[in-house]
Computed example of a mutant assay.
Amino acid sequence: MVTPLDVPRLVAGDRFVLRPWEFGDLALVREASSDEHIPLITTVPSTYSQEAGEAFVRRQWERASAGSGYPFVIVRVEDGQPLGTVGLWLKDLNEGRASLGYWVVESARGQGVAAEALRAVAAWALGDLQIPRLQLYVEPWNIASRRTAERVGFQREGLLRSWQRVGEARRDMIMYSMLAVDLP
C-alpha cells in the first residue's frame, strides 16, 4: 500500500517559500510551456491550453498522492509570484537515494531562485527526512544549472553518456550528488 505524501510548506532563504501546486499557478505553467528547454525534459506541456495546464497541476498532485515525490512551487514572498519548481523524487528511496529536479521560468532567472529552493529542499531531505544521498542530473551545456548545483554544495561525480532522452535525442548528463556531510 502506498502512503500519500503531504507536501509541506518550506522556507527558502528570506525571499522564497516552497509550497504545493495550485490551479492559481497556471500562469507559471503557461510561461514554462513557451520555454525552449523546459517542455523537452519535463511534463510541462509544449503547447499551453487551460486543459493542458490543469492536467500538469493534477499530475503534480498525483505524484504526491502516489508517494513518488514532493513537487514544490517556488514562490517569491514579496508578491506571491510563482517562479518555478523543485521536486524531490523518491523512486530509489529503498536504495537510500532520491533525486532532485528544478526549473525556473526565464523571467525569474539570474536571481538566485533555483539555488535557494534547491538548498531548502536538500537540507530538508537530508535532515528531516534522513535520506542518505541526493542526486541530480544536468546537461553539460547548462552552465547556469551546473553553477546552481555547485553553489548549493552538490558534488560533481561524472559524465553519464547518452543517459536520458531529451526531446527526440539521447543526451549526456552530468551527475551531481549531495550527502549530509556536504551541507554548508
Rank of each mutant, 00 (worst) to 15 (best):
L129Q: 12
V7N: 00
L129G: 01
V7W: 00
D182P: 01
D14H: 13
V44R: 07
V181G: 10
G24S: 13
L5N: 10
G80L: 05
R170P: 01
R133K: 15
W124L: 06
L100I: 15
L160C: 09
F72C: 01
G80W: 07
G112A: 09
E116W: 09
S49T: 14
R19S: 01
E150P: 13
D172R: 03
D14A: 12
P8A: 13
V44Y: 07
L28T: 04
A55Q: 09
P184Y: 05
R63N: 13
S99P: 00
F154I: 10
R30W: 06
Q155A: 12
A125L: 04
G101W: 10
V86S: 01
Q81F: 04
R165W: 00
L18P: 02
A64W: 06
G101Y: 03
A125M: 11
S46H: 15
R59M: 11
N142A: 08
D172S: 10
G110Y: 04
V44P: 09
P71W: 08
E36K: 15
E51H: 08
V152H: 01
A115W: 05
S33R: 03
L136N: 01
S162F: 05
V17M: 12
R97T: 12
I143V: 15
G158E: 06
H37Y: 15
I131V: 14
Y137F: 11
L5A: 08
L88W: 01
R170H: 08
R30S: 12
R59V: 00
G158C: 03
E106T: 15
G13R: 09
G127E: 11
W163H: 15
E139C: 15
Q164Y: 02
P8L: 06
L159K: 10
P184E: 09
M178D: 10
F72E: 05
A98H: 08
L28D: 03
I38D: 03
R58Q: 15
P132Q: 06
V17Q: 12
N142M: 10
A122H: 00
S145N: 06
F56M: 12
V138T: 11
S145I: 02
T85A: 14
Y102N: 06
V29Q: 03
Y176L: 02
E78T: 09
S33N: 10
K91V: 14
L126T: 03
S68C: 04
A122I: 03
N94K: 09
V152I: 13
P82I: 05
D14R: 12
I41M: 14
D25R: 00
K91C: 06
A52G: 08
G13H: 02
V181R: 14
Q81R: 08
G84Q: 10
L93H: 11
E150G: 02
V166D: 09
P71S: 09
L118P: 07
Q111K: 05
Y102E: 10
L118H: 05
L10N: 11
A12K: 03
R63H: 14
L5E: 06
R170L: 15
V105M: 08
G53A: 11
T43E: 11
E150S: 00
R109V: 03
T42E: 11
V77Q: 13
T42W: 05
W163I: 05
Y102C: 08
G84I: 02
E106V: 04
Q164P: 01
W124I: 02
V73I: 08
I41F: 13
S49K: 01
V121W: 07
R19T: 00
E157K: 04
A120P: 01
P184V: 01
E157Q: 14
S177L: 00
G110D: 10
W141D: 13
G13M: 04
